[in-house]
Design a protein around this nucleic acid. Sequence first.
RNA 1: GCUGAGGUGGUGGAGCGGUCAAUCACAACAGACUGUAAAUCUGUCGUCCGAAAGGGCUACGUAGGUUCAAAUCCUGCCCUCAGCA
Length: 309
Amino acid sequence: MNTPLLIICGPTATGKTDLAISLAQKFKGEIVSADSRQVYKGMTIGTGKQYSEIIKIWGYDLVDPNEEFSLGHFLKFANEKIIEISVRGNLPILVGGTGLYIKGILENFETASIPPNQQLRTELENTTVAALYQKLRELDNAKALSLNESDRQNPRRLIRAIEITVSKENTNLFKEKYNSLLIGLRSDIGFLEKRVDESVKRRLKNGVFAEVKDLLLNKTSVNHMSMSATGYKEICSYLNGEISETEAIKKWKLSERQYVKRQLTWFQKQNDIHWFDIQNSSYKSEVEDLVEKWHNKQCQEKSRFPIKQ
RNA sequence: GCUGAGGUGGUGGAGCGGUCAAUCACAACAGACUGUAAAUCUGUCGUCCGAAAGGGCUACGUAGGUUCAAAUCCUGCCCUCAGCA
């Protein structure tokens, strides 16, 4: 029998973690965060981490903001964590807004374990998209043809595709299979925008500016991926004197809204998500009912086919 | 009141007689996504008809004028900004 895995996804500022905590209490769960920016130490206020005293949340503070972290690291970490939690007899709950990370857990990404090839990336840095595409066609024509019009013009994707063809690494390292239930939280865009604005306000009050200042003082490079996070990016521009404080806040709010839309576009396309509107006052109990049914079924099967973990 | 600069699409800002429905950027809208994913990339973007090719209409403060042709030249008027009174 496959490991049960409860997943809570959706755009930012929908209360995913709050919901997860309450479900974890009810169903004896532990949370694994699927968030590409909460992995960085010291990025707490801006990324909206919610440390909980009652429920363990894994996946926060995994690396320094100057370190590399990406899908491959996440899959390794999260898959191990989920199994551990399950072995412990608890329910693993994966919570987050990083769509690719969640997809990576659910599907088998064969090439996700191939690490970046820095030398190659530097070499190809200034190559035009046309030339990159041409190169990919020579190396792996099938792959090149499989790319859509958008990706054919995306240097980052083209370089990665080339990187994979050149790689000698073993693939297929993350091969877990889960019995998952996906819960998606969302609402109409106007409501979500309001929530996002409030959340920005709250984080300002909680001292994000000071947090970013500290990070920069601790030698975090503005060019590092961690500092491309929404809010951090804008605050860095302000601290570097490129824009005013008011502008930074305005841009931050804007980026948040745009991010919400991108997340909605992504998640809308994913299959098997049970969607709940957070404006619906009874959504929490509806989620609980659904999870309970699913959870009971998992438990029954477990007792019917007991296997040694 | 005088002098100088300027008024362009949702915004910033090019254009300075024809190839202009107007470079570009931003916003907006739609979308893509298999180790950077809170990243990156694509398409649309005055309006109407059309599946498309294409066509019609309305537009560069405003009213006139010059010209075969005006966002671009000239004049009046109305605004904005800067300097002087």
